[in-house]
Every structure is written in C-alpha cells, then in structure tokens.
Simulated assay, not measured.
Amino acid sequence: MDNIESMKDMYTTKELASFLKVSEQTVYSLVKREEIEPVNKEDWTIDGTYFFSTETAERLKQYYTKPGLTNKDVAERLNISLSTAQKLVKAGEIPSFTATYLGRDITFVNEEDLINYEEKHKRERKIPFYDKETQTYMFQSFTHSATGELARIIEISNHDKKVIGITERGTKLHYETLMEQGYQPSYKLDNKKSINKRGFAVFRLLNPAQLNSIVYQLIEKLIYTVGVQNCRINLKEDTIELSVKPIQLPLNQWNDEEIQLLKQSIIKGKIVERHQGILLDSDEVTIHTVIPTELKKQVQLLAKSQNVKIEEFVQQAISNYIDQIKNEDIRS
C-alpha cells in the first residue's frame, strides 16, 4: 500500500514534461543520455510510462527555469522583431545580464528592467503623419488668408478620418473648419519619387511650444523637400523623431541655423557637407557575397522562424559572431 501511495506522488513522463514545459521527447532523451533515472527503469513497459521522483522533478525544474527573459521573450513582449530586441539589449537601452542556462551562456533581462523600459517608452507613438484625402501632413503650416495668422496640423487619425490643426491662439479646429475659416496650406506638396536607398537618417528634436518654432519649420521643410513617402515620424513625451531617406539637400536652400540644428539633432546616420549640397545618409552599406544554395535555405528558414527579414537576420548573425570573437580575444 505504501508503495502504491508513493507512486501516486511521482511524475509520469507526460506530467514531468508538462511540469518542465518541455516535450515528452526531451524527457525520453534525458533518460537515454542517463541524465535522469526513472524509479521504474527496469519494468517501465509494464506501467506503460516512466515514473520520476519529486526530487528529480524539482532538480530539473531548477535546471530548466530561465533566470530571466530572453531576447525572444523581450521581442514578443514589446511586439518588435527579434533583431530589434537584440539591438536594444546590446546597446544597453534595456539592462541585461549573462547567466548559464541549459549549459550555455545566454543574455537575459530582468522582468523589472523590462517593465521600467515599457513605462519609459509607453508614451512613444508611431503615428500616421499624412492624410491622403486632404493631402495634409503632421506639423504642416496653414496661413489665414486675411490675417496671416499661423496654424499647424497636430493630429492625423486614420481610425476616424480626423485631421486637426491648432491656431496661434490655441484653438483646435478640424481640417474642414480650418478651411472654412480662411486658412490655406502655406506650401503645396509636390509629387516626389520614392527613394529606394536603404535605411534612414534619424533626427530627434524637442517638441516645441511655439507654432513658429524653427523645429517645426525644419520638419516641414524636410518633408516638403524629400516627400512624405520618404519620411517617418514618431512622437514621444517631449520629443519628435523624424526619419528621412538618404538624400542630398541643395546647399543654397538651407541656412546656417537650419544646418546646425540638423547636425545637433541627428541620432542615426550621418550628415556630409558637400560642395553643392548637404548629404543626409543612413549608416547602412551593402555587402555582396556568394553562399551555397543549401546555406541560403537555412538562412531563409531561420529568418522566417524569428519573424525577421533575411537582411536583419544576417546583420544580427554577423554582429553576434564579431562580439563572440571579441569576447574570446579578451579572455585570451
């Protein structure tokens, strides 16, 4: 009777797999490699399953319990690609630590640190900044035809088809009301070709309080020059991030104050002053190589499994390999 009761307190193969959150095949593999031993190893076929002691289960639980969140966990939590999560962790924007897990040194993130990151960035918004129907864009200026009073577009919503501007007096008006009251776009958008060059030059600017701020003027001028299809805008609590496709700006159309603001605000990419223009460029370059077909298939499968583009996967794989070599050099 005691033996029957003790067997009830043990884990079957299926129960142990569920307890450890692994597959049953993993449990069978552990037994085969003699890393764990079932209590009924000799006659398990009679029982129809292995039985494992509570002590074995608890020991394995410690082994299989992750000491933190992996990069994949972070990516899923933030709803971003794995490569983006890896970049955030590597850059230190999300604090991390290295621990041994399943026999390997792996980078982990504490739950508390990820929560802090989420809190810090919860007000960041990727916004629609162009409305095709009205042909208006975020921060676009409007001028009153009679008084010359300034207004700017401050909200575009694709969800409810809403475009809202604000006047110098602080009055918020829908686009239709702006037009009815005599406001007209200060500049008319020209059709621009899509720029196919890779990457963006990214600028971070303080969100100004005054509608006539040079920051708004600069953003509007860039969008007007480059084209809405070649720009992106993200809003944070007190900053605006403007991403611009690589382009050369005519030097004679930009004054010293504007050029200086561009230089001060760039956070990704580079600015190169040339004889006839100002080059806004990304920091991405193309590397051409040749690989076997079978290797290409493996890369495609791995990229697909991580829900990233092949370019992102290869870039991160190369970066990780370089880091590995650097770490080995440091140890030696």
Rank of each mutant, 00 (worst) to 15 (best):
D2H: 10
M1S: 15
V74F: 00
W254S: 00
R198I: 10
E312I: 00
P208H: 10
A57S: 14
I267E: 09
S186C: 10
R152P: 04
D43R: 07
I80M: 00
I156W: 15
G269I: 04
N234E: 10
R123T: 07
T239R: 03
P67F: 03
A75Y: 09
L178G: 04
Y130F: 14
R274M: 07
K221V: 01
T143Y: 09
I233P: 11
Q260E: 14
L279W: 13
D238A: 05
R125T: 15
K162W: 01
Y64K: 14
N307T: 00
Q298M: 05
E111G: 04
Y137A: 13
V22N: 04
P38G: 03
I156T: 14
E257A: 04
I127T: 08
L261C: 01
P128M: 11
I233S: 04
E311W: 02
R33P: 05
S6W: 15
T100A: 15
T143F: 04
E237L: 01
K263E: 15
D283T: 01
A99V: 14
Q217K: 06
T65D: 06
I223H: 09
N40L: 05
I325Y: 15
Q181W: 04
V244C: 02
D47K: 12
Q135F: 10
T136H: 09
I219A: 10
R232W: 00
E24R: 12
E241H: 11
S332C: 06
Q25E: 10
L30C: 03
G103I: 14
L279G: 12
H275S: 08
T107Q: 14
E112G: 03
E24K: 09
E294M: 00
